[in-house]
Design a protein around this nucleic acid. Structure first.
Lengths: 206, 206
DNA sequence: TCAGGCCTCAACCAAATGGATGATGCCGCT
DNA sequence: AGCGGCATCATCCATTTGGTTGAGGCCTGA
């Protein structure tokens, strides 16, 4: 009884690497490879893998989190193991909330990945050691929830726009932009646009 | 007469993938794998590979560009093929200037990588199609050269520091910081710290 | 229906930022 | 010796930004 795995990554090279690593032993079988989230959902619906190993960033198309949500809605639902290069807090939480069985960094050793797949298949949670603490920290002080409008303003901010420019782009007055910014600053606990940008980027908010 | 290749990437999974892809044919042989730039330089000195396939971002330690410079100083010098996920203009130019034979994006198909290695071994330049135009564009408007001190200030800027904070950290007065900023803004052709941060990040300056 | 959240706008004030200009000292190169 | 580039600092001034307070309209869920 071998555990079946579906690989999801937009880089062919990474897929090859994962396949090589995973099939080195004989307890795991790669039953398919998808390059996009859409492909992953389709393939999983037909192949019914035990575990889906999914990159968080999938180039074009839907991202790993949305893919996870769709995969978890399948019947039977595969365990979803998120694999990525970056460790942004917001995304860790997002993936877990979306029903992922865990989260591994790409730079770990092959056997860690193999072990992770086995544990995910068994229903365990899988967190890269250096991430567990961060996730818990994130749980303790959950990321402030910005409104859609605030996120929008934040994006313009990060592109270096002035209040005047943001106001023009959004068809509102500067007063409104300032109001949004005041709220954003309060939620992020900062007192300057530069620091707001920094925090937003660090936490994966944008 | 097979072409020998040394792999340099900080991710074991990616190395496995590259090895699988490269050794699928029989004209290429992977003679070694290095996880850091330092390792790469040592290994290349002993293994004398025809081509070094090197990631631009190598986690800790020296980066791909510095590694390239060191590799090209070896005797005999291997052809260095840069491989990376991102296509930051500054780094493309940096790699070429450092003596790289070319530059490939990680999300290309395996056969493109194999072809690239063959062409690099033959002494050709190798540029991912979607990058060639960008490189030329970058040639036309070369990135402004910031001084070490300016880069230092820019880093603090990107972390959201105020002029006062930067001044304290660098043990200079605010006037000096403002002076550096004025120069930075002029060189980057911007007029606000936010936009300076944005440009610096986009061009890979920091 | 009412409370609360969100988006919108306004006015006022303090502080930070950006622009312009100039000066000093150091270092390396010619 | 002289020149240019760099880092340092200063002053003056206009603009931008951030902080505060308050308010009206809209929608949603209780």
């Amino acid at each position: 009884m071998t555990t079946t795995v579906l690989l999801v990554d937009d880089h062919p090279v990474v897929r090859s690497g994962l396949r090589a690593v995973i099939e080195a032993g004989d307890a795991l079988t790669v039953v398919g490879e998808a390059a996009t989230g859409e492909e992953a959902i389709t393939f999983a619906g037909h192949l019914h893998p035990d575990v889906v190993l999914c990159d968080l960033r999938l180039g074009s198309g839907i991202d790993g989190i949305r893919t996870t949500i769709a995969l978890r809605a399948l019947e039977p639902a595969p365990a979803v193991l998120i694999l990525t290069t970056f460790d942004r807090d917001a995304e860790v939480l997002g993936a877990i909330e979306a029903g992922a069985a865990g989260y591994l960094l790409k730079d770990v050793d092959p056997e860690v990945i193999v072990q992770g797949i086995h544990r995910a298949a068994a229903g365990d949670m899988v967190l890269a050691p250096d991430l567990a603490a961060r996730v818990l920290k994130g749980m303790r002080s959950p990321l402030p929830k910005l409104t859609d409008r605030e996120i929008e303003v934040l994006r313009h901010l990060a592109r270096g726009a002035t209040n005047k420019e943001i106001a023009r782009t959004l068809f509102v007055t500067e007063a409104t932009v300032k109001s949004h910014l005041a709220h954003i600053f309060a939620k992020l606990d900062v007192d300057s646009r530069s620091r707001a940008i920094h925090v937003a980027q660090e936490t994966g908010l944008i």
